[in-house]
């Protein structure tokens, strides 16, 4: 563990250098995550005449721009890299190193965040300017909770992405499962529509499932949809999910890696 912690800054530096080397592809990849902008245009227009639920037009602007920023900062796409390395057998190279392979994947995922922040910062400034900051919380405790919730969302995203990637050791490809997961994410995470606009039974279901902790929670905290106690209560739930997913990921990896048979020679 101490070796991993010691190596981590170097792994982050190298990961960032890789992200910079792939900058063109990286920015195009980020542009594929602009669905919130489409929803922003649609919903803010609809809300111009009358608010929808508790959302008027400026609140939709804050909500969707926050959604875009959180998605940029908290997403993890390691599933693709893992599946490729398992299928091609290049995972061997990670297994030969004296640090846990998942630490390497985590460093690569985290290292891309500064590049994503470069993309998100102008959006955040636009959001502040467009709404005069009306729906952005100024409470330091909630801002702190927001930072923790983004970190929790990243960890949960990373663990789930890794678990699905590891499934490639059992299946020919786990892409279909990832697509299924993304489908659930689109519906239950608040990515397309704020969860409070759905019927109560749906909100209860969304609250039980992990999806809202990947996306909606940080957005709701920063846009002031939660008070202090509500935010920290939900944050506790999120981290419980994230740490359980971390444990599940490590156990599953330990079991699944025995099946690695270095496809492709």
């Amino acid at each position: 563990m101490s070796r991993t912690l010691k190596a981590f800054p170097t792994l982050l530096r190298i990961g960032l250098a890789e992200a910079i080397a792939y900058r063109a592809e990286f920015f195009i990849w980020m542009l594929t995550m602009t669905m919130p902008l489409i929803m922003l245009a649609l919903m803010s227009t609809l809300a111009e005449e009358a608010p929808i639920g508790n959302f008027d037009s400026p609140r939709f602007v804050s909500y969707y721009l926050a959604t875009l920023i959180v998605r940029q900062l908290a997403s993890s796409w390691m599933v693709w890299e893992m599946m490729r390395e398992i299928r091609e057998g290049t995972l061997s190279m990670r297994l030969l190193r004296p640090i846990h392979p998942l630490s390497g994947y985590a460093a690569e995922s985290l290292a891309s965040i500064p590049m994503r922040a470069l993309f998100s910062t102008p959006i955040a400034l636009i959001a502040l300017y467009a709404t005069s900051g009306r729906d952005v919380t100024r409470d330091p405790a909630l801002i702190f909770a927001f930072v923790l919730s983004v970190a929790g969302a990243w960890l949960l995203n990373f663990c789930i992405s890794s678990i699905i990637g590891t499934l490639a050791l059992y299946l020919d490809s786990s892409i279909a499962i990832w697509e299924l997961w993304l489908g659930g994410f689109m519906i239950f995470s608040g990515y397309l529509l704020p969860l409070s606009l759905f019927p109560p039974w749906f909100q209860t279901l969304a609250h039980v499932l992990p999806f809202s902790y990947l996306q909606a929670l940080p957005v709701e905290i920063i846009t002031g949809l939660h008070g202090r106690s509500g935010a920290f209560w939900e944050l506790g739930h999120q981290w419980l999910y994230a740490l359980s997913a971390l444990g599940a990921m490590l156990l599953f990896w330990q079991r699944a890696i025995k099946r690695f048979s270095a496809f492709g020679g």
């Binding site: 190298i14 250098a17 080397a21 004296p98």
Partner: peptide, 18 residues
């Protein structure tokens, strides 16, 4: 590392192998 100079892989291995 495909898109980086080998020197970066060496640096990474230095960290990994301590």
């Amino acid at each position: 590392l495909w898109d980086l100079p080998p020197a970066d892989t060496f640096t990474m291995n230095r960290a990994i192998y301590d």
